[in-house]
Amino acid sequence: EPLWIRPDAPSRCTWQLGRPASESPHHHTAPAKSPKILPDILKKIGDTPMVRINKIGKKFGLKCELLAKCEFFNAGGSVKDRISLRMIEDAERDGTLKPGDTIIEPTSGNTGIGLALAAAVRGYRCIIVMPEKMSSEKVDVLRALGAEIVRTPTNARFDSPESHVGVAWRLKNEIPNSHILDQYRNASNPLAHYDTTADEILQQCDGKLDMLVASVGTGGTITGIARKLKEKCPGCRIIGVDPEGSILAEPEELNQTEQTTYEVEGIGYDFIPTVLDRTVVDKWFKSNDEEAFTFARMLIAQEGLLCGGSAGSTVAVAVKAAQELQEGQRCVVILPDSVRNYMTKFLSDRWMLQKGFLKEEDLTEKKPWWWHLRVQELGLSAPLTVLPTITCGHTIEILREKGFDQAPVVDEAGVILGMVTLGNMLSSLLAGKVQPSDQVGKVIYKQFKQIRLTDTLGRLSHILEMDHFALVVHEQIQYHSTGKSSQRQMVFGVVTAIDLLNFVAAQERDQK
């Protein structure tokens, strides 16, 4: 057995438009009618409502009807409940999964919650491996369901041993009777949507819809739904939504950006999952974080739909894509998950301010006199920076000697690579993860907040409520011999709460 199987392995699926269902090699399930009293909570997966979006479509000038398939009504709160249950049931049916076995899954959280929910009911041990950027709410729900959680670096490539995929496979090879159901490759993922989600949409719309818009992560949702719609409703256009920084969209030119990270969760990847059939997507749109969270908040405030950030991405694209539809036509959007997962993220004004998705003037509360002053007023001194090749031991000596707790790590040209902190280095040394002679590049981390000289002290204040420091950066445009230009970030300084307090105190003292 291989040590790991690539999540982007070539698909062996034989589905073709027009091929009889009787030739399918898979076990198919028909939607079942729910009894009045459910035998367990797993029976509350599927049969989610279709809700008309009344205000947002009109606000953006849509002539067509805009409908939302509300997947956050599933038992675990997301569309991923469907595939989690289906993968477990299919693994039980073919004898792969037996009582007492362990389920391991690399996930952005929602599939993990679905699997942990099913594992709690069915009696399996469950280990979820997820990147650090995923919300604390997801972690809390997983723990409450009895799952064990392993976190991995957000910026690790999918084929790196440190990625959530790599760590999951390492655990599988170490733990007896453990299984990775593997949402990236498992046919049960798109089949769950082909058999149930798509049929529900067709039934709820009486077979009449002209466009379907869905955000894409593993691709199982859009693949399964689109294949069924292509068979039953061939005139329906399928629109895929991919965040900026991901590479799922086609044509490839759409993916060209210097951005590699994004805040919206559960969609987009740096590889093409095996289950994603991009041939059934008629057109791709890219979405960005700001519009995703703005539209998610709009869905909550104006439509009462308590959905997550990827739902915002989907609707932001839908109001663009559906401009081509006329009166009497219908566009369906998939709202994948609930706001429950993001209470401390985009639902929080403070978080939105820190990330730059909300401006101070958007909030009406009274601010102190210094709130709208610029960061450049602080008069920061030149920063202490270190090269990635310097040793951890030497870096600790320098920081202690100069009285700093942290320093930016830059390359020879001064471009920011990340940050090192005294606390992080000492804990890594004590844990045996690094040696004093190791290069400081081994303990770089990139989960820090950046701020510009033109940003306000109010925004800085919000950042420092949650973080010990902020890195002050400025952009530099560099022209190359080819005539092309590129933008790079340079370090201007490091600012802490002490710097802000000293500035405010000094100004008030001078005024007296």
Rank of each mutant, 00 (worst) to 15 (best):
L457T: 02
L353E: 11
D282S: 13
Y269F: 05
F357K: 13
E361W: 12
E401V: 13
Q450V: 08
V332P: 02
N341Y: 04
L501G: 05
S481G: 15
T344S: 02
F503K: 02
E397I: 08
V315G: 09
F285H: 15
L353W: 07
L471C: 15
T456R: 09
G240F: 02
V491S: 02
E290V: 12
I498Q: 04
Q256C: 13
Q326M: 13
K359D: 02
R400V: 09
V281D: 06
E465N: 15
T344A: 11
Y445I: 12
R297C: 02
L387D: 10
E397A: 13
K442G: 06
A292I: 02
G308F: 02
E252H: 02
E290S: 14
D277N: 09
P408N: 02
Y445S: 09
Q511T: 14
T279Y: 12
L501S: 02
N288C: 11
I396R: 02
I300V: 05
G432Q: 02
V415R: 07
G312F: 02
M298T: 15
G441N: 14
T260R: 06
G423D: 05
G418M: 05
E252R: 13
K367V: 13
R340V: 06
E412L: 11
C307L: 06
F285C: 07
A470W: 02
M419E: 05
L501Y: 12
N341H: 02
A292L: 02
S437D: 02
T279N: 10
K320R: 05
K286F: 02
E401P: 15
E365G: 12
R509M: 13
A505W: 02
A413W: 08
G309C: 07
I239K: 02
L254E: 02
D438L: 12
S348G: 02
G403I: 08
D337F: 02
E263W: 08
V241T: 09
L380M: 14
R297I: 07
T454Q: 10
E291C: 13
Q435F: 11
N424E: 11
M490L: 11
H468C: 04
T314W: 05
L429I: 12
L325C: 11
Q435S: 10
S381V: 10
A296M: 06
W351M: 06
D362I: 04
D455L: 09
A407K: 02
A318C: 10
S437P: 05
H468F: 10
T274C: 05
I390Y: 14
C392E: 02
A413T: 13
T385I: 13
K283T: 02
D362N: 05
G418D: 07
D467G: 11
I334R: 09
L353K: 15
Q259N: 07
K286A: 02
Q450Y: 02
E253M: 02
P408K: 02
T344C: 06
V491Y: 02
E265W: 02
F271I: 02
S485C: 12
I451P: 13
A301H: 08
E508T: 02
L363H: 15
N288H: 02
I463A: 02
S427Y: 11
M490Y: 14
H394C: 05
Q323R: 13
A311N: 02
I416C: 14
L430N: 14
Y262C: 05
G441F: 12
K367C: 15
L276R: 06
V280W: 10
Y269W: 04
K446L: 11
Q302Y: 07
C392A: 12
F492Q: 15
G304L: 02
Q376T: 10
K484C: 15
D270M: 02
G393I: 11
Q489P: 15
Q256F: 10
E361I: 09
L430R: 13
N424A: 14
K286P: 04
E361P: 02
T456D: 13
M490V: 14
A292R: 07
T274F: 02
I477C: 09
D405W: 14
K320V: 06
E253R: 11
G356P: 05
D282T: 11
G266Y: 04
R350I: 09
C307D: 02
V415L: 12
Y342P: 02
L254F: 02
S428A: 09
K359V: 09
S485K: 02
F346P: 07
K320M: 11
S428V: 12
Q487A: 11
D405S: 07
A316H: 12
E401I: 15
F346M: 07
L248Y: 02
E253P: 02
T385D: 06
V280M: 10
L306Q: 02
